[in-house]
Amino acid sequence: MDSNARAIARPRPRQALADNLAGYAFIGPWLFGFFAFSLIPIFSSAYFSFTRYDLLSSPVFIGAKNYAAMLRDSVFWKSLGVTFFYVAFAVPLRLIFALLLAMLFNRKSRLMRLYQAVYYFPSIVGGSIAVAVLWRRLFKDDGAINSILAVFGIDTHISWIGNPKTAIWTLILLAAWQFGSSMLIFLAGLKQIPESYYESANLDGAGSVRKFVSITIPQLSSVILFNLLMQTINGFTVFTQAFVISGGNGDPMNNTLVYALYLYQKSFSYYEMGYGCAMAWILVLIISIFTALIFKSSSSWVYYESKEN
């Protein structure tokens, strides 16, 4: 008994080693992926950002010249502007859609599972070529949208995708349409709100708007914070949709040239990998600032139960 207890409390060194090895073997695949596909690329990209690197030959160290060149690059500023505009509208729209749909689906019914799956679907197919083709068909000069408008007597012959004023909005609409993952998280959050809160509000005669503002929103605020953060980060790194819909060149007039698309062009189309890496680090900085700001502001609007006590 005694010796057994001691053995459990202090394992022999050999056995400890074997235990550790087994542990490392189990996380090995993850470790490999982490080093090969995250950590090493992160460090090399930091180094490349200080070099002139054309992919075809070895990188040449040039100090902070890439960062200095960015300040004078009008296309860089343009792409930054496009991205901010996109984030400012796409993220709130997506969250609002997600919340509305989540509330609609927060009922007990057999069909709800089916509806959830159906509405989650756009998020899965969102980045695919098929959706880009669909979007082009919808918003072309002779596309479905114009045909529907014509039925109501509105005669437009513009290509919504090719027009400089509307092109970015087709991307924002696509983003709003892909609210699925946020919706599921909202739905999980809604299910956590105790039914009794609403029951007592009903007894006090509160209307549905009142219940939404005073119960749903505060109770859901931490989930809103999570979704806002994730979607803001997603928004700043948007690439696939812009790439497929604009044919990869940010048409028209660079009005859909989002930051990540320009970064890609610089790195892989113009063979300026050093500049592309520098742009990536600026994006890291921008996202960090926004994440910090959102976290900072959260103390004034996110409601945590534990604080109340």
Partner: peptide, 10 residues
């Protein structure tokens, strides 16, 4: 052809 239509062709 107006440019919004012309440039969008694939």
């Amino acid at each position: 052809t107006p440019p919004d239509v012309s440039f969008g062709q694939t």
